[in-house]
Design a protein around this nucleic acid. Structure first.
Length: 481
RNA sequence: GCGGGAGUAGCUCAAUUGGUAGAGCGACAGCCUUCCAAGCUGUAGGUCGCGAGUUCGAGACUCGUCUCCCGCUCCA
């Protein structure tokens, strides 16, 4: 299937079978916001829980979790650089339809001028930017006849503000209210709690703090289904290390995170690392783990060596010492390492992007036609651990006591994993419905069950069936999880 | 934001030059059925994206508007 069609098919399937719905659809929807439906939420929860366990329980490193609030003190975003770096005035060229950050455009032009002239121009620009004077900025562009590099024209729109962060007011009385932001990343919740966690959990470096939660970003263009949403969920872990060791920990987490991906049942050829050449303001090394989505390789997870940028910024702004006292002996000096601000290696993966990866990877259209008749099915090949429903229990017919036996099995199994019971329609049709939402096992109760307590267990991917004793079903499913 | 394409039932689509909305699948109820969708009967479901205009009459024509998709621009 062509990739553009595959994306369409996945979006349609996700909606049709209750995985992902457009937000507020009855009111024409809300751009780049989606809701998870009954099966989507199970899939997403399974991913989230698996990541959490893998990080905070199964991993050999010392990692604990937190759950910080979405609202944070405005100074947090001052310290993190989000206020200064991500609220840029933008301008569009009407002929080329290209959009530019105003500062980039003017800086680019300034470089073509003589040094003194350029400096003067940039000084003017900084003055206008500091004053939020957009009309002044536009005037500056017009006076200097700064042209679009593509269209070479000066046919510009007005200058507009681009805000990465969503803001709202805290305080119920309007005059007393103060502006705060919805967090654009979860990491800062970890940094501001660094001391709390380190002290109360008596954590020793190296150690990690994990968090899963919502984050919010205005996007200039929100496209690609749940790949890029305005409200999304991140699974992040900040790993605090001794300065100077960040490079080896960066490499460690680079490979460690790929090990996690290798357990998701995804073709390893669909993954690649992408090293950042141009580094963000806080990083000394950074790479992405990319997955080949239907629209191409795209960033799924980021691994960043964030240095001590964040803790240091918070220390400066808050005047609180964000230090760790390291009693370990430095072999070079024979003395304790002493007080320092830890360096940080971050792993940050998009939960929604992971769900989209799993949907993309699992979605399979199969042609089952024989010479006699045409036949096909759509099957979602999730690994059982992540599948929304683990087991469907299907009496072959809804009479002769078969539903009663099925319900007994249902009662036993539902205590351990998500089950689905259905007695309507032909058995083949019920199998196909379960295929469409990725249920790995179906068990069918028939008349023979009444005689020898055996049932048919049917495997999703191979469609193979085997006859087993009814008492084995629970363990067969549990072993696959 | 710009350019292109598309909006009719849950889904896929149909409705002669404008004449007042249908089918298949799906869903639901029942019948029949001893293991891989499309056997039988019945039922529900649509102010044709929304709003104006032209007309005796608009799903169709005109204008506006909204939403979605594709491409471009920005981006941790």
């Amino acid at each position: 299937m062509a990739n553009e069609n595959k994306l369409q098919a996945i979006i349609a399937h996700a909606k049709e079978y209750g995985f992902v719905f457009p937000s507020s659809e009855i009111y024409d929807g809300l751009g780049a916001v989606y809701d998870y439906g009954q099966w989507g939420v199970e899939l997403k929860r399974n991913v989230r829980e698996y990541w959490w366990k893998w990080m905070t329980q199964m991993n050999e490193q010392n990692i604990v979790g937190i759950d910080a609030s979405i609202f944070m003190h405005p100074s947090v975003w001052k310290a993190s650089g989000h206020i200064d770096n991500f609220s840029d005035p933008m301008i569009d060229n009407k002929d080329s339809n290209k959009r530019y950050r105003v500062d980039h455009l003017i800086e680019g032009f300034a470089e073509t001028l003589a040094e003194e002239e350029g400096k003067a121009l940039l000084a003017d620009m900084d003055k206008y930017i500091a004053a939020d004077d957009f009309a002044g900025l536009k005037q500056l562009i017009e006076i200097n006849k700064i042209a679009c590099p593509v269209s070479k024209t000066v046919n510009w729109t007005d200058v507009r503000q681009f805000n990465l962060m969503f803001s709202t007011e805290v305080g119920s009385v309007a005059e007393e209210a103060s502006k705060i932001y919805l967090r654009p990343e979860t990491a800062q919740g970890i940094f501001v709690n660094f001391l709390n966690v380190q002290k109360t959990a008596r954590m020793k470096i190296p150690f990690g703090i994990a968090q899963v939660g919502k984050a919010f970003r205005n996007e200039i263009v929100a496209r690609g289904f749940i790949f890029r949403m305005r409200e999304f969920e991140q699974m992040e872990m900040q790993f605090f290390v001794r300065p100077g060791t960040q490079k080896e920990w960066y490499e460690y987490w680079k490979s460690e995170r790929m090990k996690w991906h290798a357990t998701l049942g995804i073709d390893s050829a669909k993954y690649r690392y992408h090293d950042h050449v141009k580094l963000a303001h806080y990083a000394d090394a950074a790479c992405d783990i990319e997955y080949e989505y239907p629209m191409g390789f795209k960033e799924l997870e980021g691994i960043h060596s964030r240095t001590d940028f964040d803790l240091k910024s918070h220390q400066e702004l808050s005047k609180k010492k964000m230090q760790y006292f390291d009693a370990d002996i430095d072999p070079e000096t024979g003395k304790a390492y002493g007080n320092y601000i830890p360096y940080v290696v971050e792993t940050s993966i998009g939960l929604d992007r992971t769900v989209m990866m799993l949907l993309s990877e699992a979605y399979t259209e199969e042609d089952l036609s024989t010479e006699e008749k045409q036949d096909s099915r759509v099957v979602l090949k999730f690994i059982p651990k992540l599948a929304p429903i683990k087991l469907a229990i299907l009496p072959l017919m809804k009479k002769d006591g078969l539903p009663e036996i099925a319900k007994e099995l249902m009662e036993e199994c539902r205590q351990h994993f998500k089950c689905f019971y259905e007695e309507k329609d032909a058995i083949g049709k019920r199998y196909r419905r379960m295929d469409a939402i990725g249920t790995p096992f179906c068990v069918t109760i028939d008349h023979q069950t009444k005689e020898d307590q055996t049932v048919t267990i049917r495997h999703r991917d191979t469609m193979a069936q085997e006859r087993v004793h009814i008492s084995e079903i629970k363990n067969i499913v549990l072993q696959s999880l």
